[in-house]
Amino acid sequence: MSAAATAPSYVFDEDAQATIVRARAPLSPKAESASYAARVVVDRHDGREQNVAATPLASSRVFEAAPELRPIAHNKTASFTVAKEWEGVVESIGISHFMAQLREIGSTDDATEVAELPIGDIPAGEREKLREGAVFRYLIGYAQHRTRTVTRKRLVYFRRGRLPQDSSVEAEWLSIAAMFTDD
């Protein structure tokens, strides 16, 4: 199976207000079949990967833009094919760059890389989320623009926070703590 067939594809807003919204439609039935198992949809509003391998792409879920983001018109999208993807954590923030730890998505080991990345790689609408400890995805791949030109591109998008765990976790932990502290 070729690398092109297995690489996940995304649609992104070329104006960089919203990075990744939904899976790209298949190029051809053959390519679709070959890449089905590896295809994921990234919902940029909660950052969770959703495998749609078992779902026909025609009926796969299209994620709505978050209220703070501009709706994305179809003719403003272009394709992005990922060559490599990492999950990262922001360690410190400078004037034009930020330092991060990165771990490759799909890699089975826990090897960690560190890098100084340009803040300019973060879409303008996302930069307010840059803070120490923030978890993000870093992608390098080929972008095919509306003009059909193809360029190499780096993308950053931040993962959305989850609602705090329900209070049962806290209650459980407190009850365990009480076993050891109430003597």
């Binding site: 978890v135 976790v169 932990w173 407190l174």
Partner: peptide, 18 residues
Amino acid sequence: KEFIKFAASFSNQNSAKF
């Protein structure tokens, strides 16, 4: 109890990779 409250509130905030 304050540490437990703090820890529990972050207990589902971390990524699978970190």
